[in-house]
Design a protein around this nucleic acid. Structure first.
Length: 776
DNA sequence: TAAGTAGCCCTAGGT
DNA sequence: GGGCTACTTA
């Protein structure tokens, strides 16, 4: 089927648009917009770039624009293509358009995430990509396991060449819309020279399994549009208006996809903020938004600069920080709001003290003793750079009984028990799902260990059948005996029963799901488990079954889960939120804490090592995103000492702190700096206390500035990140002294005197003659 | 085959 | 420090 659904068909649309437009209803929603927003809503024809700074009412403008398109009769709901990155954003957009129109928006079938829309397109044209319309979507876990098999089969040492790394490589290639044949020579030799060959083999396997991974969803569609002009033409005519949210986060494949589809009517409106581009590591190209005017000739650029979120001090600090970046499109945020409090800056001795101080501060703000009014914990957030920073806060808050929630922990559907259960469901729906079978043959334990599984694998390969069928044959042929054989027989019989039930239902799919979990022994397995998290897992399984109720059948549910992840836990008592800076994008809080502003942690050493100045600038945008989350009170902090991977390390304040505009910052002095309690007898304590004090004295930053380049700050070095050459003597904390034998990227081959030959990351060693200077 | 232990790595994370 | 994998042991 290559055609369109009947109700989507617009071909009869030689309809007089102007007449429809004249019938448009009044548009009261326009009166609630400021002039820039209004311009963004009313400039409907031709390419538009809406540069929307943080907190400037971007979503409002975007949703009003859709409402306006519908209201003026310029497009029918199914002629608008509106793309977001997350399901959450898509959902919000749908809701808000509905609210604007005063009724639920039916038939906006093309409002969704890039991936959801691509699935829809790909199902229609699957055969053009060598797939069947009912292809399955693999998640990252499946992907890695498949790749692992290929790596092993190719004779590579899977330890030296981890499948996860290959998965990352292939993802990057797919993000750039490179099929196996299009990977440039320079990159093709990655992964021990076999990168591309493995990529090609992987794509073959996927085809054979009738499966696609996330990257494929886009790649296949782009390829189809590129190679089938007739298909492209259909969609070009169909999508009269295209809207894109978070354009600064698009990767090359998404960009190509958009350009192809917008090539007909040219009515594409991209919304974004180059200063909030923080997903470069995931393949996003800031270049897409910077190049917009070139890519789409005649484009109009509309800037949304009035900020409705943050106080003037907070905005000034944010602007001051981001000003250090180069190549920006440039925006000047302004606000009518009252002056409010300055951004607060405070240094601490170590991470525990930082957590203690923030905990007390949160309580004081909650009581209202630290501010003009009390704040709910719901209005407070702690935004960290790296997830391992979260633990100190969790520990502290558990101790003092401060309610908190961690946003972005392991996703519901990524949990072990959910994945297991899903594998059972998948097998019931499609018995040929080998990956699912592998996952659950021996879960719960059925006495089918590696050996038994290998037999089945071999049989499958020899017979050319799926694993389930192969297992059946192995049993019949007496290849397995004893307990394992008996239990395998039980499993296979159960699978048959479940599959028959899927084909010819005699009961609801919810009941079937319960039966599957019970009959398989999976529920019993967790009931018998006495570890503390078993109870929680059982509850998750119950939740899973409950979630099934909203779907017509298991198939529908599986598709949904493949694409969707968020389960918003309902709000109970007020809680302070802990999350990463990345997770905070798009959110806002009255009170924001930004801990851990230390060089190496933030900006992250790794970001700088791997991406140099580009990496540093992305880190700076992350700082900008963090600060602009705050409405009223924003507190930045850093510590003099931090435990990293169990080792104490002294740290220097982040270079971003030097960039905070002084007039808008208040430097706080933490209590108890001299109070001891940190082993006052330990050597060096006075020194370190003195230094910590310097960070906290009112003039410390000026002193730093005057001193010129302070201390051994981590440097951004573009060309030569390593700094060692073969023959250098080095010292490693764990392995001792050694000699550099060779270089490979940021890794060194070192022959250690005692520990022998090792590969170590360059920054973990120091030149041997300097070793004595380095405090460990 | 299952339980126990040693070695290894370690940003950010939606679909 | 902690979580995961791979290897070793009962």
């Amino acid at each position: 089927m290559t055609g369109f659904d009947e109700d989507d068909a617009f071909e009869a649309a030689a309809r007089p648009l102007s007449a429809r437009a004249m019938a448009a209803r009044p548009a009261p929603y326009l009166d609630t917009l400021n002039s820039a927003q209004r311009q963004a809503v009313e400039t409907l024809e031709g390419p538009v770039l809406m540069l929307a700074g943080a907190g400037t009412g971007k979503t409002k403008a975007l949703t009003t624009r859709i409402a306006h398109l519908l209201n003026t009769g310029r497009a029918r709901p199914n002629e608008i293509l509106a793309v977001t990155f997350t399901n959450k954003a898509a959902r919000e957009m749908k809701t808000r358009v509905g609210a604007l129109m005063g009724h639920a928006v039916e038939g906006m079938p093309w409002l969704g995430t890039f991936h959801a829309i691509c699935v829809k397109l790909l199902r229609r044209h699957a055969e053009l990509a060598g797939l069947k319309p009912n292809f399955t979507i693999l998640d990252t876990d499946d992907q890695v396991r498949l790749l692992k098999q290929l790596v092993v089969a190719s004779g590579l040492d899977e330890k030296r060449w981890p499948a996860r790394q290959l998965a990352g490589l292939i993802d990057r290639w797919k993000n750039r819309a490179w099929g196996p044949g299009a990977v440039p020579v320079a990159e093709a030799s990655a992964f021990d020279g076999r990168g591309v060959a493995l990529y090609a083999a992987y794509q073959e396997r996927l085809k054979a399994l009738n499966a696609a991974d996330f990257g494929d969803l886009l790649l296949h569609v782009v390829t189809i549009l590129q190679t089938h002009p007739d298909v492209l033409e259909q969609y070009r005519r169909w999508f009269r208006y295209i809207l894109v949210d978070e354009y600064q986060d698009t990767n090359v494949a998404q960009y190509l996809w958009l350009r192809l589809l917008a090539g007909g009517h040219h009515n594409i409106c991209c919304v974004g903020d180059d200063d909030q581009s923080i997903y470069g590591w995931r393949g996003a190209e800031v270049g897409n938004i910077l190049r917009f005017e070139k890519d789409f000739p005649g484009a109009q650029v509309i800037r949304l600069e009035q900020n409705y979120r943050s106080s003037p001090h907070i905005l000034s600090v944010a602007s001051g920080v981001i000003a250090a970046n180069t190549g920006r499109l440039g925006k000047t945020l302004w606000t009518d709001a009252e002056e409010g409090e300055k951004v607060r800056l405070i240094g601490h001795w170590d991470g525990e003290e930082e957590a203690r101080w923030i905990g007390e501060e949160a309580e004081a703000l909650q009581r209202g003793t630290r501010s003009l009014r009390p704040f709910s914990l719901d209005a407070m957030a702690i935004l960290v750079r790296a997830s391992h920073q979260m633990r100190a806060f969790e520990d502290r808050f558990l101790t003092i009984g401060l309610p908190y929630r961690v946003i972005g922990g392991p996703r519901f559907y990524e949990r072990l028990e959910i994945r297991d259960a899903m594998a059972y469901f998948r097998l019931a729906v499609s018995p040929a799902d080998d990956l699912a079978f592998e996952r659950i043959v021996n879960t719960p334990k059925r006495g089918l260990g590696d050996k038994a599984q290998q037999k089945i694998q071999t049989a499958a390969r020899d017979l050319g059948t799926p694993l389930v069928e192969a297992a059946r044959r192995v049993l019949q042929g007496g290849g397995l005996t004893g307990k394992g054989a008996a239990q395998l027989r039980v499993l296979l019989e159960a699978l048959d029963r479940w599959h028959a039930e899927v084909l010819n239902p005699t009961q609801s799919h919810v009941e079937l799901a319960e039966i599957i979990l019970d009959d398989s022994g999976y529920t019993a397995m967790w009931q018998a488990d006495k570890s503390p998290d078993a109870q929680g897992r059982l509850e998750n399984l119950k939740e899973l079954v409950k979630a099934l109720e909203e779907f017509e059948n298991l198939q529908g549910f599986l598709e949904h889960v493949a694409l969707i992840m968020d389960n918003e836990s309902d709000a109970e008592e007020p809680k302070i939120s802990i999350m990463t800076l990345h997770a905070a994008k798009g959110l806002e809080f009255a009170v924001v804490f930004l801990p851990g502003w230390e060089d190496g942690l933030f900006p992250s050493q790794r970001a700088m090592d791997e991406n140099g100045l580009k990496g540093l600038e992305e880190e700076r945008r992350l700082a900008y995103v963090g600060i602009t989350r705050a409405e009223e009170i924003c507190t930045i902090s850093f510590t003099a000492n931090r435990r990293v991977y169990g080792q104490w390390q002294s740290a220097l304040p982040s270079r971003f702190i030097d960039e905070l505009p002084e007039d808008h910052v208040e430097v706080l002095t933490p209590p108890g700096l001299y109070g001891g309690g940190y082993g006052a007898s330990a050597p060096g304590v006075e020194q370190r206390a003195a230094r910590a004090d310097v960070y906290n004295s009112p003039g410390w930053r000026r002193m730093q500035a005057r001193a010129g380049q302070p201390a051994p700050r981590a440097m951004v070095i573009e060309a030569q990140p390593v700094g060692f050459t073969a023959g250098d003597r080095v010292f490693h904390q764990k392995f001792g002294y050694g000699t550099v034998m060779g270089l490979e990227g940021d890794k060194l081959d070192v022959e250690f005197d005692k520990a022998g030959a090792k590969k170590v990351v360059a920054r973990f060693v120091t030149a041997a003659d300097r070793a004595g200077d380095v405090p460990f």
